[in-house]
Design a protein around this nucleic acid. Structure first.
Lengths: 207, 207
DNA sequence: AAAAAAGATTGAATGAATTCATTTTTTAAG
DNA sequence: CTTAAAAAATGAATTCATTCAATCTTTTTT
């Protein structure tokens, strides 16, 4: 049976995470203060630093939860993709993009992405980067599944090609969150256009 | 004839830029303090903010100078590329990578990339992003030049393909600067591997 | 049950980026 | 030449992330 201390620790962690997630959504990352998060979570400022390395680590913890959901939402598509390569990629990528802005603003995404680059060694930065790799793996797995089904030419380096598709969608997403005015549909259309050449070239010919 | 004030302004700007560039190289971005930069440039801390929006803007100003050199170094390759698509791409990309670490550390690149995402609206963040777009354009121009020379299939969407190659090299460079231990050769090899499928598929067949 | 050890909590102190009210200097107008 | 306007310079004050020495609480050991 777990001890009182472990129970209290888990409870405090949940309260801090919930308080931070809520405050980041309400006022944005920059305007959110550690003191306010601590107050809402009913802990001291010093206690906050027992649970998270710093403010950025906190944001990455909240964002990581969303990325986990993005991954989960992608699984059924990889398990049962549309027949066409471009159609399958577009379905998965559109799902990623749709899900990304359900709970997180562009500002939060910008900050999370920036933090994962600038502070790669904090615990949740590592977790976020690991989730990114799993997203890349998911895209690669999709290409491999399509190859197994005969939609992609044999002999195609699916790891290289999967990485190309993923790195492109990620960079385009970065450009998207940089630009507050850019609509989601514009992003999707541009990425579908960019994927078309490679998707067509790796496809088995239609008979 | 320009006034005294304009001369003094240009002189102070140059002093601040040089002081910052030097200090960032000596101690790194985080350890460099505005007060130290100002002292070296022989201005007040408040004066610093007349010239740069904030500390991050200052770093992006110094990094932008390097990116301009990267662009210049790429021009002769685009003007006279090797015959093969993969060879041409590899030559240009290796040139980019070689040049990147001549004057800037991985830490400085991480910070610059992070700042350009997190604070896209500062003056030098905009400049840095613009230079990024020009790098992308340079890669696209290379593909177009190869297409004009018959090395790339007609009908290939060179804008889409160029963007794919560029976004991939950029994301891989981001992964590289995140990882202090990763050697430059590993990065180059991995990117060459990733480029091979698309480069082969868009190449005109050898007869 | 008591004492020791380990872990957690605390919040004022610290550090450094950034702001801003005031002053100084330069330029333009009369 | 004098005055007004504009621009630049200044550096202490402000803000807030982060640290850390002291204290408290829980767990383990005797």
């Amino acid at each position: 049976m777990t001890g009182l201390r472990a129970k209290q620790k888990a409870d405090k962690n949940r309260r801090i995470l919930e308080a931070a997630t809520k405050l980041f959504r309400e006022v944005g990352y920059d305007a959110a203060r550690i003191e306010d998060i601590a107050e809402r979570a009913e802990v001291s400022v010093g206690t906050f630093y027992n649970y998270y390395q710093n403010k950025g680590d906190m944001l990455l913890a909240t964002v990581a939860m969303e990325v986990e959901e993005v991954l989960e939402a992608g699984e059924p598509i990889v398990a049962n993709p549309p027949a066409g390569v471009l159609a399958a990629l577009t379905k998965l990528i559109d799902q990623y993009y749709d899900h990304s802005l359900v709970y997180l603003s562009k500002e939060m995404w910008r900050t999370a992405m920036a933090l994962s680059i600038q502070q790669p060694e904090t615990p949740f930065s590592k977790r976020y980067t690991d989730l990114d790799r799993r997203l890349c793996l998911q895209v690669t797995t999709l290409v491999q599944k399509l190859q197994q089904r005969g939609a992609v030419l044999m002999g195609i380096d699916t790891v290289a090609v999967g990485a190309m598709f993923f790195n492109n969608l990620n960079m385009m997403f970065t450009d998207f969150v940089r630009d507050e005015a850019m609509p989601l549909d514009t992003l999707k259309e541009e990425v579908a256009r960019q994927n078309k050449p490679l998707a067509s070239l790796i496809s088995t010919p239609n008979l």
